[in-house]
Design a protein around this nucleic acid. Structure first.
Length: 560
RNA sequence: GCGCCCGUAGCUCAGCUGGAUAGAGUACUUGGCUACGAACCAAGGGGUCGGGCGUUCGAAUCGCUCCGGGCGCACCA
């Protein structure tokens, strides 16, 4: 085979077309050449709409342009034929060898198949989950965790140097409410008590914290150990203990979910380190602030907001976005020229404000920085009814419940497999009672099946890459090859669009292609050439299934 | 009222950045284990892509406008 063997068919065809284009219309040689896979087999293996794209610019009939392109197309061993169809499509039919070579490519590089250098090793930070330490993680946090972590994995596969960060809002009113709530419980009072704070947290877990505090338990959370003081009157001690206690619980849940972070940032540290004061001083010096009605305002309208925002309240305290600005200035100074914040859509209003504040600083931070991935709300259905998520009311489904009842793999798959722009209905009953019908098992089953067959073959998997693939010629086999061929671009697209759900979609298709083939053909047949070629294909599928499941944070079991 | 997101088969969702006859799963109706794992496969019915107008060779995809649903529009975080 010629040098073309090192390329994938799509790139090869684009190169051929580019050569032809340069020869017939040098003026338009910079036109983007799009090669796509037709939905219908009768339209060939690949198709290009180049002639139609050029029609407008060249003021000519697309079919005539297509004819000229074909006449100028260099010969290729991979190309069986290229013909013109419809309004001016160019349909390519490839040699079988061009379609099956992907199996050798996959086996040669193993898990590296699908990894790219798109990110060029540049630093990138993803902040996700960032739950307030005021209660256990719920399903919404779970979605953020599943999407954020998977996004990190996909970006890393695409060549980025990824840092995972969790930001704790461990200061402010919510923490005061938490402290009051725990203190009430320490005194044995219940939410029915007339003195119970209106904004207090009513969940059962508050009782656990109060008990642990009175028992003078010690809590180790991430970076420090806190021993409960036990004094019912010491609000500061209660606050410190409650926050540490809940951070520990959240850490446990995240660990059970297969998620870890590189950096934990604390809002309280921004105050104690003087970073908030510094940001405020810079904002004041920028000339974008003004005093009105005993408060200090930031002219966010200078940066696209629809109205100005208060940054310092008349009681002297800062509004919540001020520490956010200080926090992001810190991110910027840490060298992250690319930052993605994964949050619930209810945080949408902060985006404009934080970006406006950052630009007002005059530090040269770009307009669109940081970037955001917002996931829409998760609606939890139980017993056919919607479960309201309210920490204060104390009725909600925790992430821990889901992991224990549905399993880590199914929970992660379910929460990541959908476009974050769409609302998610998590039917707990369905997830529990019909867990064997969850698509994640369908994908894992394909992996386990391949493992089983290869085990029964009892040969050396590393030999498979040396056998010829000529025996692969069936429709299902070639479709499977085409699917494998599409994996690297699937990863790249998912990374570029911050859309890990596309990995899940791909894996379902890959598993379906495999199951269909598996039921139609036997692998362990007497004919050695056929057996080896089919095993090689299966081994390649297994590699991609593993890689893909890993990107979702889902395990790839060898038996189920 | 303003901003963002969504609306595709009974239900849950894809749809490769504007391509050719809109696809999966589920549910329903059939068929396939003395064959490498039936947690699987094959076949069938099921659609005004929320409605309308526009942009062009071509629209589920882009623009405008209605309708419906969600989330935000604090000197809360």
């Amino acid at each position: 085979m010629s040098a073309s063997a090192s390329l994938d068919p799509k790139t090869h065809l684009a190169d051929l077309l580019r050569t032809a284009l340069a020869s017939i219309a040098p003026d338009h040689s910079s036109t983007d050449i799009l090669i796509e896979r037709p939905k219908q087999a009768s339209h060939g293996d690949y198709a290009s709409n180049l002639a139609m794209q050029l029609a407008r610019a060249m003021k000519a009939n697309p079919r005539q342009i297509a004819e000229q392109l074909l006449a100028a197309l260099p010969a290729s061993e991979w190309l069986v034929k290229a013909d013109i169809a419809g309004a001016g499509f160019i349909n390519f039919t490839l040699a079988t060898a061009a379609k099956t070579q992907v199996v050798k490519s996959v086996l040669a590089v193993d898990a590296a198949w699908g990894r790219s250098q798109a990110g060029a090793g540049k630093k990138l930070q993803v902040e996700f989950v960032s739950a307030n330490p005021t209660g256990p993680l719920h399903v919404g946090h779970g979605r953020g965790a599943a999407v954020g972590d998977s996004l990190c994995r996909v970006l890393a596969a695409a060549g980025w140097d990824v840092t995972r960060e969790f930001y704790y809002n461990d200061a402010g009113n919510q923490i005061d409410n938490l402290t009051k709530s725990v203190q009430m419980r320490v005194h044995g009072l219940t939410p029915d008590d007339p003195n119970w704070p209106e904004e207090g947290y009513r969940g059962e877990y508050i009782i656990d914290i109060a008990k642990a505090y009175l028992a003078k338990e010690s809590v180790v959370a991430d970076d420090k150990s806190v021993v409960a003081n036990g004094d019912p009157e010491n609000a500061e001690a209660i606050r410190e203990f409650a926050v540490a206690y809940l951070r520990r619980e959240q850490d446990k849940d995240l660990k059970a979910f297969g998620i870890s972070f590189d950096v934990f940032s604390l809002e309280s540290a921004l105050y104690s380190d003087g970073k908030v004061d510094e940001a405020v001083a810079k904002l004041k010096a920028s000339g974008h602030t003004y005093a009105e009605g005993n408060a200090l305002w930031l002219k966010t309208t200078d940066f696209g907001d629809d109205k100005d925002r208060v940054m310092q309240k008349s009681d002297g305290g800062y509004t919540y976005f001020v520490p956010d600005v200080a926090y992001h200035l810190d991110k910027w100074r840490r060298g992250f020229t690319k930052v993605i914040n994964e949050q619930g859509a209810d945080h949408h209003s902060t985006i404009t404000r934080v970006r406006a504040g950052l630009q007002a600083l005059g530090e040269g931070i770009p307009q669109g920085w940081p970037e955001y991935v917002l996931h829409q709300m998760v609606m939890v259905m139980k017993n056919g009814e919607e479960v309201k998520l309210s920490k204060r009311a104390g009725s909600y489904v925790t992430l821990r419940d889901l992991i224990e009842e549905v399993g880590k793999d199914a929970t992660r798959y379910f929460l990541v497999a959908r476009n974050p722009d769409s609302q998610l209905v998590f039917d707990v009953d369905l997830a529990k009672s019909q867990s064997t019908e969850n698509p994640v098992y369908y994908i894992q089953y394909a992996h386990a099946r391949i493992c089983s067959v290869i085990q029964q073959w009892a040969g050396d998997v590393s030999d498979l890459s040396h056998y010829p693939l000529d025996a692969l010629s069936g429709e299902k086999e070639l479709a499977l090859c085409a699917r494998l061929q599409a994996w690297p671009e699937t990863v790249d697209t998912a990374a570029a669009e911050y859309a890990p759900y596309q990995i899940a979609v791909y894996l379902k298709d890959l598993a379906a292609d495999f199951h269909g083939w598996y039921n139609a053909e036997r692998m362990l047949v007497d004919d050695e050439a056929i057996k080896h070629a089919r095993l090689a294909l299966a081994a390649a599928v297994r590699i991609v299934l593993r890689s893909g499941l890993d990107l979702l944070g889902v395990s790839a079991p060898e038996s189920m």
